[in-house]
Design a protein around this nucleic acid. Structure first.
Lengths: 186, 186
DNA sequence: AAACTTATGGAACAATCGTTCAAGTAGTTG
DNA sequence: CAACTACTTGAACGATTGTTCCATAAGTTT
């Protein structure tokens, strides 16, 4: 094994992580070779060495973020109680506000690059696969509402907290008569 | 009245409309004084004359889009049947895809400028005011789901059509037991 | 018509951009 | 140690950027 390549891969990932921090702070429009290099503490030409173009760097960042998003979302959606889901959503629009904003900016990036769509909506596909919803329509509403609550939480005057979101999530999970199970098993 | 100012206002609006077209075509990142001027058919310095900065131009565009969005959304939400709402959503992610994408990019802009939040979520506030929902939680889910369906429709492999969205909208309006009225009047 | 205000638009500035290049270091393999 | 490969890095290029400046045209008021 080549120790040089190992360090190279580490640096490559460091550059991607720095890119995400730049997006969190200044938005996608703030991403330049130089701003990323400065954030990562590497010379200006390092991003160009590891990525063919600025576009490739953004794409790599989106793919990485999408992967992390899947991990976070899935065990929450599949196994969480209403309160846990509400708490997680509240954190996304408060403590992790910058991160959530960055995720949606990258999300929209996929709207203009067909080849990125699959990565951007992977957590949606995975959610369906994991939960195996008894009522596909209700579950689709559930997933859509999560995106809507998050994006609306980002432009709220004061972002909603756990207590405000809990009844909404409850409604989504149980429906208004509590009669329909969310998954087909159990 | 000053005919010069009248023509000035007209030109100002033409520049804003050109900006929106640029965003639809190339995204917010494609907006520069020169690209907007070219699109509007005015000299390079015209946008600078009418707007203090590029930022101000984007803000003016967001405010204008937000206003139009209110008109479109409201009579659909307040008075439309499930099929009509589904049809409208389908149009937003198909024929009007570019426009919808532009709207969400501007939407996220508001996420980074507190002073723009009110404009970006104005249609949400208006919707609540117009519909006067009997069940506020259910209505909030309804509004969140609209945003979620649209944004997810933008990154779908093939955007959903009216027939695909109709049962989902139906579910949102009526609930799964059709027993809860959407508005308190009637 | 003179004085004044507003709109117009080309030229040009410094700054920043993405990217290329070439010279150099360091680690690996023969 | 020699040959090779991978990484490092500063300098620099041309292009584009936001914005300023200024001379001029057009419209309004006196």
């Amino acid at each position: 094994m080549d120790g040089r390549k190992a360090r190279g891969e580490k640096k490559r990932r460091a550059i991607v992580e720095a890119t995400l921090r730049v997006i969190e702070r200044d938005g996608v429009s703030g991403v330049t070779h130089r701003s990323v290099a400065r954030e990562a503490g590497v010379p200006t030409t390092a991003p160009t060495y590891y990525f063919a173009s600025l576009d490739d760097l953004l794409i790599a960042t989106l793919l990485w973020v999408a992967e992390e998003l899947c991990d976070d979302m899935l065990d929450i959606i599949a196994r969480g109680t209403a309160r846990e889901i509400a708490s997680s959503l509240a954190r996304a629009v408060n403590e992790n506000r910058a991160r959530t904003l960055a995720e949606y900016e990258l999300y929209l990036l996929a709207g203009r690059r067909p080849e990125l769509k699959a990565a951007a909506r992977r957590w949606l596909d995975l959610a369906v696969e994991v939960v195996r919803p008894a009522d596909p329509v209700a579950f689709r509403v559930f997933l859509a509402a999560i995106d809507g609550l998050l994006i609306q939480g980002l432009i709220a005057d004061v972002a909603p907290d756990e207590d405000e979101l809990e009844p909404i999530v409850s409604f989504l999970i149980c429906g208004r008569d509590d009669s329909t199970p969310r998954t087909s098993e159990q």
